[in-house]
Each structure stands twice: as C-alpha cells, then as structure tokens.
Lab assay of single mutants.
Amino acid sequence: MADQLTEEQIAEFKEAFSLFDKDGDGTITTKELGTVMRSLGQNPTEAELQDMINEVDADGNGTIDFPEFLTMMARKMKDTDSEEEIREAFRVFDKDGNGYISAAELRHVMTNLGEKLTDEEVDEMIREADIDGDGQVNYEEFVQMMTAK
C-alpha cells in the first residue's frame, strides 16, 4: 500500500514521523504519540494510545517504525480525509473560533508540534493556502489545501 505514495508524500511523512519521534530513535512510543496528540489539544487515554499503536504495529514490538507509519498514512489517505476530520483539524488551528486561521494561530500550532518556523515560513504557508488574498485561511481554503492532490 505504501508503494502507491509519491516521493514527495514519503518525504512529508518522514518529516511528520520525526515530529512524533521525539528522541530520534526511529520508533514512536505511546508516550511520544501522547505528547504530540496533547500538543494538538487531544486528550487520549493510555489505552487509546496503545490501541492506536497496536493498529499499525505490524511486528508487534509495541512501537511504530517508519515503514509501519507509512502504511498507516497510506491507509488513512485511501479513506481520504472525511469532512469531519478536516473540520476537526481546522478547529485545532482556529484557536479563537472566528472561522479563520491567522498567521499567529498557525505559528502557535506548529510551535506546539515542535516545528520552529520563521515568520517568513509561516507567512508563506498562509499565502499558499490563501486563495482570496485576505491574509488568513478560511474553512473553504483549508479544505482545498487539505484535499489538493
């Protein structure tokens, strides 16, 4: 299944994987998964984290390695993001709930994920998604960005 991913997608997933893999040992533990999910405003229980890991832990060693992570991402993409997942993601970014993602809100979430971005990089990300040019990202623009192939 992971063989249907483009090189660009694999590179993006590698970057995402390293955000989860806090200690850089090449595997994601339940603790690391929990840290990232909490930084995104989720509050999973230990059991939920274990279930999430077990779902993709092909070799049964209790952690997720990069090939397992790729399989999980490929699977998720095949079920292409349901509207509800996209709306949920939008809410994570839209901290003040005004229906727009500002540069400050984007920077806040990315920083929580451990991504240190310059102001230019954040502005560039907003510009790429900002179709109507108002300097922020509304829900429609967010959907376009998330579903762009």
Rank of each mutant, 00 (worst) to 15 (best):
V56T: 04
D130M: 04
M73P: 06
P67L: 12
E83R: 00
E105A: 14
H108Y: 13
E140Y: 12
F93H: 11
L113S: 08
I131V: 12
Q136H: 09
N61V: 13
D3R: 15
E84N: 12
R127T: 07
I10L: 12
R87W: 15
Q42P: 08
E84A: 15
A129Q: 05
P67Y: 00
E105I: 08
G99R: 10
D119N: 12
G24A: 11
M1K: 08
R127W: 09
D25C: 14
G24V: 12
T30P: 09
G62E: 14
S39D: 01
F20M: 06
E84D: 13
E7P: 02
E46Y: 01
D57H: 08
A89P: 00
G34F: 05
S82W: 07
Y139P: 05
N98C: 07
Q4E: 02
G97K: 15
D59N: 12
D79P: 09
T111G: 05
V109P: 05
H108A: 12
D21P: 15
E8N: 15
E84K: 09
E124V: 12
D23G: 13
E85Q: 04
A74V: 12
G135A: 12
D21R: 09
E88V: 11
M52R: 08
D65E: 12
D119S: 14
L106I: 14
G97N: 10
V122W: 04
I86W: 06
I10Y: 02
E46W: 09
K14E: 12
R91P: 04
G133W: 00
T29K: 14
V122R: 04
L49P: 00
R75D: 05
V122T: 15
L49Q: 02
E48S: 05
T80P: 12
F90Y: 12
L19V: 14
H108K: 06
I86K: 05
F69I: 04
E46Q: 13
Y100R: 10
R127L: 14
Q9K: 10
E48Y: 11
A148G: 08
K95W: 09
G114S: 00
L106D: 15
K31D: 02
F20R: 15
I53H: 15
G34R: 13
A47R: 12
D134H: 01
N43H: 14
L19P: 11
D119Q: 01
E84G: 13
E124M: 03
D57L: 02
F17A: 00
M37T: 11
M73H: 10
Q144F: 03
G24P: 03
D96A: 00
P67N: 02
A74D: 08
T147N: 14
M72L: 14
G24N: 04
K22L: 04
F90I: 08
D94V: 06
G34K: 03
V122S: 15
I28E: 02
I101T: 09
K149W: 08
D79N: 10
R91F: 05
E115T: 03
T111R: 01
D65N: 14
N43K: 10
Y100N: 13
V56M: 11
E141A: 02
T35Y: 01
Y139K: 04
N43E: 04
G114A: 05
K14T: 08
F66N: 04
V92N: 06
F93K: 07
G24Y: 07
E83A: 08
N138M: 08
E115S: 05
L40K: 13
K149L: 08
E12R: 02
K76D: 08
A58T: 13
L117F: 06
E32F: 08
L49V: 14
G99A: 05
N61P: 05
Y100P: 00
I86F: 09
F20Y: 15
E141K: 06
A104N: 02
K95D: 01
H108F: 14
T118M: 10
A104K: 03
K78W: 01
G26M: 09
G41H: 02
Q144Y: 08
K78Q: 13
M146P: 12
A58P: 15
I10W: 12
T71E: 03
E83G: 12
A129T: 08
R38T: 13
L117W: 00
G97D: 12
K149G: 07
P44F: 08
V36F: 13
R87C: 12
P67C: 02
V92Y: 14
V109E: 01
A104G: 12
I131L: 12
E141V: 08
N98V: 03
M110H: 05
D65V: 13
A16C: 02
F93T: 14
A74N: 12
A47I: 09
A2S: 11
F17T: 00
G60L: 05
L40P: 08
D3K: 13
H108S: 12
F69T: 01
F142I: 02
T27R: 11
L5D: 05
G114C: 03
N54Y: 13
Y139A: 01
G41R: 12
G24W: 09
E105Q: 00
T27W: 04
E115C: 05
G41I: 03
E105H: 15
M145V: 11
V109M: 11
I53P: 12
N112V: 07
F142K: 08
L19K: 15
Q144A: 00
S82R: 12
G62I: 08
T111K: 05
L113Q: 01
D96I: 02
S102A: 05
T118Y: 13
N43G: 06
I53R: 13
G62Y: 01
T147P: 12
D94L: 10
D3A: 05
M125E: 03
K22M: 05
R75P: 09
E15V: 09
M125I: 10
F20K: 06
S102M: 04
F93D: 14
K95E: 11
L5Q: 09
E121F: 04
E83Y: 03
D23T: 00
Q9S: 08
K76Y: 15
N138R: 02
M125D: 05
K116P: 14
D119F: 09
L106H: 09
D57Y: 11
L49H: 15
V92I: 12
E85C: 08
V137T: 09
L33T: 13
A103P: 08
Q42G: 07
G62R: 14
G41L: 06
V143W: 07
E128I: 11
I131E: 00
E88Q: 11
I131R: 13
V56Q: 12
P67W: 08
L19I: 05
T6S: 14
G99W: 08
E88H: 05
E124W: 10
F69P: 03
Y139T: 04
P67S: 11
E46H: 06
R87I: 02
M77C: 08
G62P: 01
G114T: 04
A58G: 07
Q9M: 00
D25E: 08
E12G: 11
K76G: 01
N138P: 15
E15R: 03
G97Y: 00
I101E: 04
K76S: 08
D79I: 06
E105S: 02
T118Q: 15
V122M: 14
L117R: 05
K14G: 00
N98P: 03
S18G: 01
I10S: 11
E7V: 11
G60A: 02
V56D: 02
E84R: 11
T30Y: 04
K149S: 07
L5A: 04
Q136A: 09
Q50W: 07
G99Y: 10
I86S: 07
D134K: 00
G97I: 05
R91D: 05
G133P: 01
A148Q: 15
D25I: 05
E8P: 04
P67E: 07
D23V: 12
N61F: 03
G135L: 01
R87E: 14
K149H: 08
M73C: 08
M110S: 03
V56E: 07
D81Q: 03
A129K: 14
T35A: 12
K22F: 06
D65Y: 14
G133N: 10
D119V: 09
M146I: 10
T27P: 10
M52C: 08
T80Q: 11
K116H: 15
M110F: 00
K22W: 01
D130E: 11
I10M: 07
I126G: 00
A74L: 04
R91I: 03
S39H: 09
L19R: 04
G26A: 14
